[in-house]
Amino acid sequence: MRYLIALILCCLAQGVWAQDWEDQRLFPGASATTSLRIISSTDTDLFAPLIETFVSGNPDVSIEYFVTGTADIDRRFREIPDAFDIAISSAMDLQLKLTNDGYALALDNVPHPDWAEWRQSLFAFTAEPAAIVINRAAFAGVPIPQSRQELIEALRARPEVFRGRIGTYDVRRSGLGYLFATQDARASETFWRLMEVMGGLDARLYCCSGDMIDDLTLGKIAVAYNVLGSYAEARAESQNVLEIVLPSDFPTTMMRTAFVSKASRQPAAAERFIRYLVSYQSNPADGVRSLPSLQESEAGSKRAAIALEPALMTFLDTLKRNKFLTEWEDALIQD
């Protein structure tokens, strides 16, 4: 009886634990003495090659990799700062605020360009533009829109095709979606018009890029706005179906960032991982990356990434956020 209870409890715990995460995986080191816990918003498939290379080079470290949404990372980290050694997220604003609030450990002399780090604590290691991803089938015989303005016109031209078949982030749930939306809104009024058009066509809201691309590949939706192009490119099976458009009017480029928790119990190993991550992503010469490297954004200066600066905290202000979400809901949710 006792065994049964234990078994049930065990299964239950496992179930609860498993349900808590979008994904989780253990990368055991060959002779591991320390274990790093990484909380990340990056899909395991994209990050796995990188971790595997690290673990094979550092057999004394094994890595537990947990995947969850960007907003969730922020929440969990603030609740229990010592639960994880490293936080990796695509929501630059949340990461910057965590660093500003003193959750990140400063690492000395990490060789990294000044624009790609903040307080020597928060390190950017990818540059990923937000893209309009299109299912080619929906645009057969019609020119594919290259900018937001053209997208607005294309949606208005054939509302019957796109009604209920447009996807974008639910900025209330997704930190990255909120970052993209706020940066878009800063850059141009076109964003609000696009939101209104999308709202008029009953746009579907998603929590994550992955789901959006899934539906796009299946043809459930025809257009996804502000998706990470890198995710779409990573799907081999969708190569023929999807068209990735980087809007030509103005780019919104996010940098994935990582930091070591100040409360980390393995600061030395965590620092080693960050140094490895930064140098691995800074040298695109030695082989193909599953994640876009930082250098690509540096080369194309037009696609300047969102700057890592305190101004990122502006839209995280409660008053500001409430105001923005109200406007966003007014535009997009027209019941």
């Binding site: 500003n100 003193g102 000044d114 780090e117 903040w118 307080r119 020597q120 800063r186 700057a307 890592l308 600066e309 305190p310 101004a311 990122l312 905290m313 502006t314 202000d317 008053l319 500001k320 105001k323």
Partner: peptide, 18 residues
């Protein structure tokens, strides 16, 4: 209070002050 983006932007420093 519609916090202006420039309010924090102008506080950017070379040493990345909090």
């Amino acid at each position: 209070l519609d916090l202006p983006y420039s309010a924090f932007s102008m506080l950017s420093t070379a040493a990345d002050d909090q």
